[in-house]
Computed example of a mutant assay.
Amino acid sequence: MKQKTHTLHTARSKNNCPTCFGADGLEFTFTQEEKETPFFKKPALEIENKLFCHTCNNKIYPVNWTEDIERVFDYNKKIAETNKQYLKVKPLFYIMVVVALVIVAAGVYFLIPTL
């Protein structure tokens, strides 16, 4: 099973970094994973987020966020659109369904005695 990560939204913030106090380096990134098997594709329900400071090259964890950073985070989270929940079926799935139906039909035809 393959897993791909799609970036939904990336935004720069003018807030001060809680670690280095730089004002130009903060960047929010919202991502969503998508699981892919030979039969189907399906995106995950949860959205992962990350706050990274390009000035000090550190990941900023939510424990260190200020109220201003949380407000900007909430705003950007609303902007980040999730991929709609879907189940995209691949051709191999349809082939397996048809083969299963043919096997069941042949079993019924040959195993049930004719009246």
Rank of each mutant, 00 (worst) to 15 (best):
T31E: 13
F21Q: 12
Q32R: 15
E34T: 13
N57I: 06
N76T: 01
V63T: 09
F73L: 05
R12D: 11
I112S: 05
P18L: 00
E67A: 12
F110I: 06
E67T: 07
K42F: 09
E46K: 15
I95Q: 07
A44H: 15
A80G: 03
I103G: 00
F28R: 01
Y86C: 06
V104F: 11
E36R: 04
K84P: 02
F93W: 14
F30M: 06
E70H: 03
N58V: 01
C17G: 03
G107W: 13
E67Y: 01
F52T: 04
P113K: 13
C56S: 05
K90Q: 12
H6L: 09
C20H: 07
H54N: 08
F28Y: 09
P113A: 13
K90W: 12
T7W: 05
E34C: 08
I60G: 02
H9R: 09
Y94V: 07
K4C: 04
R71P: 00
E81D: 15
Y61K: 10
T19I: 13
Y109G: 01
F93S: 03
N64M: 10
L51M: 04
C17H: 05
P18W: 00
V63L: 13
A11N: 10
K77R: 08
V99A: 15
N57R: 14
K41R: 13
F93G: 01
L51N: 01
T7A: 10
H54Y: 10
G25T: 05
Q3G: 07
Y109I: 07
I60F: 04
T37A: 02
N16P: 00
K14R: 11
V63C: 03
I103A: 12
V97S: 00
T82C: 05
F73C: 02
R71Q: 10
G22C: 08
F39G: 00
I47A: 07
F93Y: 14
E27F: 02
C53E: 04
T55D: 13
K78V: 12
H54M: 03
K84M: 08
P91V: 12
E34K: 12
E36T: 06
F39H: 00
K4M: 10
N15V: 03
Y86Q: 06
A23T: 13
L51W: 05
Q3T: 14
N15G: 02
N58M: 04
L51H: 01
D24Q: 09
Y75M: 08
Q85A: 07
N16S: 13
T29E: 13
A106K: 04
L101C: 11
F110G: 06
K77S: 02
E27R: 11
L26N: 10
L87T: 05
A80Q: 06
C53N: 06
Y61G: 02
V108Q: 06
I79S: 11
K35Y: 15
V108N: 04
L45I: 07
P62A: 03
Y61W: 09
T7C: 08
